[in-house]
Amino acid sequence: MLSERMESLADPRLDVYRSLKSTNATRDAQLFIAEGPTVVERVLRSDFRVRSVVISDRKFAAFEPRLPADVPVYRLTQVQAEELVGFAFHCGVMACAERRPPQPLETWLPAAGPALLVAGDRVTDPENVGALIRIGAAFGAAGIVLGEGSADPFSRRVLRVSMGNGLFLPIVETGDLAGLLAKLQQQYAMDICLTVLDATARPLHQHHFAARTTLVFGNEYDGISEAVRRVSDSRLTIPMFNGTDSLNVAVSAGIFLHQYRSTPADA
């Protein structure tokens, strides 16, 4: 193992971990930071290239068996670690990995047969994006599509909430969600279902899902954009009672994806 005790926080090899709460330099550098034992272990098992691991002394002994021999490991005291990252280092371990280039649809989306995709239209809250990824993985989604304005799917919070499931699931970020959905519809025979708050939409329990379905979830405040609404006439809603006017994006996603898996799909 390439383990090294770091004596000085000025060492440039630690720069990517510096003041993480006040900077977002990793996205511009095509890197991301994973934090916490579970997510770090998963990034180490993934096919992402891991550049380094930072670990506190109190976490080292328990985590050492999971550290690969070919990744630099920088050991810090608890005080050093908290000074470096700029917040309480309760997680005890972080890893820096390289983002991958976008994966073309044809490399991972089956051309025929059942396929479920989850799409987010300007889902801005990192916790909601993380939940969409985790729920999508749990219900067997083939991939996640995020439109412009959505939270970074490889931010620390998203990775933490998703429990690292996005490391093993294709994630597509697009500046033209409407265009990509139209392509899925026309070239990949995907049924595009928009999840909406609309009394005229079809109640979810009355809908028979196509085997190839993309479920689209909208912005937390104003829902699905007009451009995306023009892509499909298939609009679904969850009937609610007691004056409830909406559900959290993540809660809605769990309900919709469970319904997709629970009902026989139309061919």
Rank of each mutant, 00 (worst) to 15 (best):
T38P: 13
T38M: 14
V39R: 02
V40W: 00
R42V: 07
R42Q: 13
R42E: 07
V43N: 03
L44W: 12
L44E: 10
R45I: 04
R45G: 08
R45W: 05
D47P: 14
D47S: 13
F48C: 05
R49C: 00
R49A: 02
R51W: 00
R51A: 01
R51M: 01
S52N: 10
S52M: 04
S52D: 04
S52I: 02
S52C: 08
V53C: 03
V53M: 03
V54F: 03
V54K: 01
V54W: 01
I55C: 10
S56P: 06
D57K: 15
D57P: 09
D57W: 11
D57R: 06
D57V: 08
D57L: 12
R58N: 13
R58F: 12
R58L: 10
K59W: 13
K59M: 10
F60N: 11
A61W: 10
A61G: 13
A61L: 06
F63Q: 05
F63N: 05
F63E: 05
E64T: 14
E64N: 12
R66A: 10
R66T: 14
L67N: 02
L67T: 01
L67A: 04
L67M: 10
A69C: 15
A69S: 15
D70S: 07
V71N: 04
V71A: 04
P72C: 05
V73G: 01
V73M: 03
Y74P: 00
R75W: 14
R75Y: 10
L76T: 14
L76Y: 07
L76M: 12
T77A: 09
T77P: 09
T77L: 12
Q78K: 07
V79N: 06
V79W: 11
Q80N: 05
Q80I: 05
A81R: 09
A81G: 14
E82N: 07
E82H: 10
E82C: 06
E82W: 07
E82L: 09
E82Q: 12
